[in-house]
């Protein structure tokens, strides 16, 4: 067991971590941040996606030790001021979810994309979301919601 410092959603945490513990385990079981889901647990469904220093990673296969001294952003970090952020708003407006289990993962992948590239092409959006599976929506609404963010930006500029 080692005490490890991890910054989650702008707050520094010190957590006791074993080398085999994953970031998903630490977030959900030690920090009670259950917005991050666990689906397949083998890398593929994307429900566990969080940002590590701003980049999308699967928390189910990220060892928690790898997050030492780094910045983690989870879905809970998007609503710091109590309001939905613009990706969440777009999902709600476009009904881009049904059961919602995949949604936090999709939103985190989308955040990583838009933070790095505010005006992505449709192909770039699809590429960024390849690692997220949804078994309900059929993806059309998700893509619509994501494209709408891009169009809104365009409308303003």
């Amino acid at each position: 067991m080692e005490r490890v410092r991890i910054n989650v959603n702008e707050i520094d945490h010190e957590v006791e971590v074993e080398p085999w513990m994953t970031l998903n385990f630490v977030l959900r079981e030690k920090l009670a941040l259950t917005g991050t889901k666990k689906g397949c647990d083998t890398g593929g469904c994307g429900a566990c996606t969080v940002l590590l220093d701003g980049r999308a990673v699967y928390s189910c296969m990220t060892y928690a030790m790898k997050a030492e001294g780094r910045r983690v952003t989870t879905i809970e970090g998007l609503t710091g001021d109590g309001n939905l952020d613009r990706i969440q708003t777009a999902y709600a407006e476009h009904y881009a979810l049904q059961c919602g289990y995949c949604t936090p993962g999709f939103i985190m992948s989308t955040k990583a994309l838009f933070d790095a590239n505010p005006d992505p092409l449709e192909e770039e959006i699809k590429e960024a979301l390849v690692g997220n599976l949804c078994r309900c929506t059929g993806y059309a609404k998700i893509l619509e919601a994501t494209l709408s963010m891009k169009q809104k930006r365009k409308g303003r500029t």
Partner: peptide, 9 residues
């Protein structure tokens, strides 16, 4: 090599 979540790690 896909997905990006793996490539980032």
């Amino acid at each position: 090599i896909r997905p990006i979540q793996v490539k980032n790690l």
